[in-house]
Write a protein that binds this DNA or RNA. Structure first.
Lengths: 184, 184
DNA sequence: TCAAAAGTGTTTAACGTACACCCATGT
DNA sequence: ACATGGGTGTACGTTAAACACTTTTGA
């Protein structure tokens, strides 16, 4: 599990690593601002964002009282080659438990995000940091009945290739409508 | 399940009912501001607050772009006789599904709070809006092993008086430390 | 041929759910 | 006496958890 950090180009904390972010503009919603900053600073777009928490200690920014509304997204690492831009020197992925010292209170934000993930996402080894039983995992996930088996298989791996599945959006929506709720 | 509303004394939406709240002051944290506003407008203090969500649509306040960091608290109704003050004409409890039309986007905030409660709090009939089986409820709660039976019983009720229990903070903290997590 | 992950069933334990009657108290 | 909520045990079904070997593929 990795986290995307940017190296700050501007004061305060110029040169330090930090979570990507910036100020909301006039007539911009919070989520739109989060998307814009992510795109500007890392080149990543079109992701599902979820609001995490709002941090507002008066002393968390040395300049003045800045309130940060944090969002997080989960993306597949290999789909997102990052490129730094505008007010970041560079952007790079770090292991969540292996980050440099971060600017502002961004370590608290990262910790909160990791906690949230661990309590919400119950079937991903990289997030839970523990191996899962394959048979039980398949039984459970297939029982949800929201996956469609495809003809495709994994390519270029040095072991038996895994069969690939497609997410059945329609069935998922139906389940949600009938009150059922689950997180993968 | 009731929600505490205040009748606004000032523009915008003077005379309309709304959730208690106001602006964060210089050198004040978000939670401190929420506590101060709650106390000023309703007389309620010393409660457990939890951050709910941050609302930031540019058009949610007719004056200018105002971002609201919402908090909620759960209190026992009978412990909190409310009294209006400062910028509220009056404060009163309303059934959550029986509120007047609210100022700003406060209906969205209330809805979000109710949703959050229903998904977090799994053993309170008033929140789930459905009766629970008493035997199963006791079995489950007592199995958590965080309650201590006291000698006290309920007073002045027109039926058999219920035995009262105390919450075992120490045992609860130990459970939390060993990774266990539950919500009542 | 070796390493590495994919794939496959069964058994057991834990937990959730359904269900009906008597008890204590105030009106 | 009656209305109201308190208090109690068991049986059944569902879900979670434990567990080992064969298959496929590239290096």
């Amino acid at each position: 599990l990795k986290v995307l950090l940017i190296q700050r180009d501007l004061e305060p904390f110029a040169g330090k690593w930090a979570l990507p972010g910036g100020f909301v503009r006039v007539n911009e919603s919070l989520e739109a601002a989060a998307r814009r900053e992510l795109l500007e600073e890392t080149g990543i777009g079109r992701v599902y964002l979820e609001q995490l928490f709002t941090f507002g200690r008066p002393d968390r920014d040395p300049r003045e009282h800045v309130v940060t509304v944090s969002y997080y997204a989960l993306v597949k690492l290999s789909n997102h080659r990052v490129k730094a831009a505008t007010d970041a020197r560079q952007a790079a992925w770090f292991g969540v438990s292996d980050t440099p010292k971060l600017a502002f209170d961004h370590e608290s934000i990262l910790e909160k995000a990791f906690e949230r993930l661990k309590s919400k996402v119950r079937y991903h080894e990289t997030i839970l940091e523990t191996p899962l039983d394959k048979r039980n995992f398949r039984k459970k996930i297939l029982a949800l009945d929201v996956l469609i088996e495809t003809e495709e298989i994994q390519q270029d791996v040095a072991h038996r290739a895994a069969r690939l599945y497609r997410f059945d959006e329609a069935k998922y929506k139906q389940l949600r409508k009938s009150g059922y709720h689950f997180e993968i």
